[in-house]
Design a protein around this nucleic acid. Structure first.
Lengths: 136, 136
DNA sequence: TCTTGAAGCTATAGTCGCTAGAGAGATTAT
DNA sequence: ATAATCTCTCTAGCGACTATAGCTTCAAGA
């Protein structure tokens, strides 16, 4: 049995966030002590780890809810789960290539060595979109 | 002179977002028609393009405010602007490498070809963090 | 000139995923 | 017993928008 602080330490999820997840229905309301404090079981710990990990991978709260529903029916086909992972993957890849374009442009901007704003590339480049290497 | 809709079309910034920027003090309140509708000048267009472009590069509203302040004083040194670009760049690079780790993990997850949830990698992998290749 | 339909106005509330604070009560260690 | 630390609920705030309702104005055609 863990207190909420203990659970927080073990999962790396902040205390208010745990309570928020409970409110959102992602985790069940746990048993309470006589003094009304939450006490979590190993199961609660596992579920929260699942959630944390999924969030880190970029799944939204709603998607995690779906995944949790899926995992509650282990006899069913896992197509849905795979589709979700594939969507996540595609999204992550899109974000990567977008960021790489930004990286190139910021590198270009940073390379300038003018001494006053008047002839400095940062403002110039940001002001005039047509100067960009790539569209975004 | 552009209407707000025209400005929106030309910059790709949505109408409510333009009004929001005005409220936040990022763009000046423009002149109005007799009937109280906003009318923008070329300058307004330029400024909004600057803002849009900066947002796309990941600058926050506050950072953009700073950049706009800087550009209003072109006689000053541009160190600040460069520092901001450099910070942005470092941040973008961090985000890229983080996403690349997620990409690898999601690829691994998606590669599974089980037929039911019970022996499917998605849920498994998400549930047990220790299975991850890398820490995150 | 009149009419009609698109576009614009303000104000308010909602989104997502938390995070922070106040003020009270519970638990734990000494 | 007491002090220090945790935890409780409730409310409000964050950033950067987005949506809605109910109204007014504009521009183009008849």
């Amino acid at each position: 049995m863990f207190s909420i602080g203990e659970l927080s330490r073990r999962t790396g999820v902040k205390i208010p966030t745990i309570r928020y997840y409970e409110q959102m229905g992602l985790i069940a309301a746990p048993d309470r002590t006589e003094g009304n404090q939450r006490r979590y079981s190993k199961d609660g710990l596992k579920r929260l780890s699942f959630i944390r990990h999924s969030r880190e991978l970029g799944f939204s709260i709603d998607e995690i809810r779906e995944l949790l529903d899926l995992s509650a029916h282990p006899e069913q086909p896992c197509n849905d789960a795979h589709q979700m992972a594939a969507r996540r993957l595609a999204d992550v890849q899109r974000r990567i290539s977008r960021l790489q374009r930004l990286e190139r442009e910021l590198e270009r901007i940073s390379a300038c060595d003018a001494h006053t704003i008047a002839d400095c590339a940062v403002i110039e480049t940001l002001a005039d979109h047509s100067l960009c290497e790539t569209e975004h």
